[in-house]
Each structure stands twice: as structure tokens, then as C-alpha cells.
């Protein structure tokens, strides 16, 4: 039997780039809190470097990155690289937003674990995170 985790799952919800669409990020943060997780929301317009810093300093279990501006390929690449450079490449990164299929494949090649597009259910996302962290 696997050891049962007693501390709450810590998640960083991040909004890189210039876009101001954070309805999804805030709704997700709320759902994760309701699911008993500890959530840190960065607020808008964070640079990839700041997101990496927060992820490392706050010792989070998962980083969820929301991008709706179309600049995802560049932003995710910088976050993944930054985490690896800080020896934190093992922190799983999830993506969310308006992201085309061919880019989802690209993001997964970069090491992004999963990408959730519009219409994804909150239960599916929180369930995925729980499985990911307890695995």
C-alpha cells in the first residue's frame, strides 16, 4: 500500500504573457481550493522567470500555466527551461487555454504533462492533479 499523503497538494496557478483573461485561472484556483489543495495564484502578466522562481521557492507539487493570447509555445518553452535550470525539472507542468492540437503535441515534447482546452471539466483537472501527485 502506498503511503497516504497527509499534507495538502500545493499548486501554482500562473498567468504568463500580456493577456488579461484570467476567468479560467481564477475559477480553476477556486475549484482546487474546494478540493482541499493549497493554491498560489500569481496574478496577471508574470514573466516565465518569475513563475519559475515562485514554483521553486514555494516548493509546489504542480504548476498550472494558463495562456489565451497565442504566445504559449514561447512562454512554455521558457518556463520548462527555467525549471530545468533550477534543477526543478521534476515539478510537473500542466497547460490550459486556447491551444491548437499541433501545439499540444509540441508542448508535450517540451515536457508539459497535459494540456486542457476550453470545455475541460474542473473535476477532470483536479482529479488529474490528484492522480499525478499521488502516483
Amino acid at each position: 500500500m502506498a503511503a497516504v499523503r497527509t499534507t495538502p497538494i500545493r499548486v501554482l496557478v500562473a498567468k504568463p504573457g500580456l493577456d488579461g483573461h484570467d476567468r479560467g485561472a481564477k475559477v480553476l484556483a477556486h475549484a482546487m481550493r474546494d478540493a482541499g489543495m493549497e493554491v498560489i495564484y500569481t496574478g496577471l502578466r508574470q514573466t516565465p522567470a518569475t513563475i519559475v522562481d515562485i514554483a521553486v521557492e514555494e516548493d509546489v507539487d504542480v504548476v498550472c500555466v494558463s495562456v489565451l493570447s497565442g504566445a504559449h509555445n514561447m512562454l512554455f518553452a521558457e518556463i520548462m527551461e527555467g525549471l530545468r535550470a533550477r534543477a526543478a525539472g521534476d515539478i510537473p507542468v500542466l497547460g490550459g487555454g486556447v491551444i491548437p492540437d499541433q501545439d499540444i503535441a509540441l508542448l508535450k515534447q517540451m515536457g508539459v504533462r497535459e494540456v486542457f482546452t476550453p470545455g475541460a471539466s474542473l473535476t477532470a483537472i483536479t482529479g488529474y492533479i490528484r492522480d499525478l501527485v499521488s502516483a
Binding site: 500580456l18 493570447s69 504566445a71
Partner: peptide
Amino acid sequence: DLPTQLGFDSDDPRAKGEVGVV
């Protein structure tokens, strides 16, 4: 575009990837 709305020139590092997009 978003850099213009946020008062960044097109060659500002913060504008990277967002010039002329929206």
C-alpha cells in the same frame, strides 16, 4: 495589439510573441 495597449514598444522584451497578434 497587447503591447500597444500596455504601453510597450514592439521591440520591448515583454512584447515578444505578442506583436501584431490581437
